[in-house]
């Protein structure tokens, strides 16, 4: 726990002071304008919640994937990967601590997107179920951190794996229904999309804003948590295997 908190505190300070960690959140207003321009052109103010949530989710998922890779890259350049490999506790713990701090900061994308909608298109987003929204955001954010760990482990394996880190973004956002709900996509992708925590999370976040009643709340929260836990288990195991491999082969700083 102390290693998690140490990583969390350190990243919180770094996240506030380092411009490269602001990258994803600073693009939120432009992306909000993009989505809002589409619903405005087609005169669909009923989709405002979709247009406001999508850029925030894009920013948050981008932040989790980007931060995971950046942490490993910086640790490699600073020759700290060797020290992490030599310690008896898992490298995953401080990495998750640091990613949690970044995701906490990236939650600011939601008020930022709402403010952009109000300032640029004069659109207001009223939240019907604020407690459901809060719960959905907490579990979805936790699942983002957990799942992004899978892609972080690849960055340890090879510096060329930044390509795979990049590839984690839009396939997950598309199948996770970040803007267009999974149910509207072709039927054959539904089974794949439902294995991704984000499809449950984004549906729930949108329902918390627009639906008169939120159905199956506990089931849906549970699915986000369950799939997030599966991502955490897979990510932790992968990271341990990869750290072991690069340590044994002696490629830890040159992979």
């Amino acid at each position: 726990m102390s290693r998690y908190l140490a990583g969390f505190r350190m990243q919180l300070r770094a996240g506030i002071r380092t411009p490269s960690y602001w990258m994803t959140i600073l693009t939120t207003p432009a992306q909000t304008i993009l989505f809002l321009s589409v619903i405005t052109a087609f005169d669909r103010p009923d989709l405002t919640a979709h247009a406001v949530i999508a850029p925030a989710v894009v920013s948050m998922w981008g932040a989790s994937v980007w931060t995971g890779g950046a942490i490993v890259r910086n640790d490699r350049w600073g020759a700290m990967l060797e020290l992490h490999a030599a310690t008896p506790t898992s490298y995953a713990v401080p990495v998750i601590g640091r990613m949690s701090a970044t995701l906490l900061l990236s939650l600011a994308a939601i008020p930022l997107a709402m403010a952009t909608a109000w300032l640029t298109f004069g659109l207001d987003v009223g939240v019907r179920h604020p407690w459901v929204l809060a719960a959905a955001l907490v579990v979805t954010t936790a699942a983002m951190v957990s799942t992004a760990l899978i892609f972080t482990s690849m960055t340890v394996l090879s510096r060329a794996a930044i390509t795979f880190q990049n590839s984690a973004s839009y396939p997950i956002l598309l199948l996770g229904g970040a803007f267009v709900p999974l149910d509207l996509l072709p039927g054959w992708v539904h089974p794949i999309g439902r294995l991704i925590f984000l499809s449950w999370g984004t549906d729930l976040v949108r329902d918390s804003i627009t639906a008169a009643t939120v159905e199956d709340l506990w089931l849906r929260l549970g699915m986000v948590l369950l799939l997030g836990a599966a991502g955490l288990a897979a990510g932790t195991r992968l990271l341990r295997m990869v750290m072991h491999r690069v340590t044994v082969t002696g490629e830890i700083s040159v992979a």
């Binding site: 989505f35 589409v38 087609f42 669909r44 989709l47 803007f179 267009v180 709900p181 509207l184 996509l185």
Partner: peptide
Amino acid sequence: AMGILVGS
């Protein structure tokens, strides 16, 4: 896919 959402 935005076209699917707005029906265009």
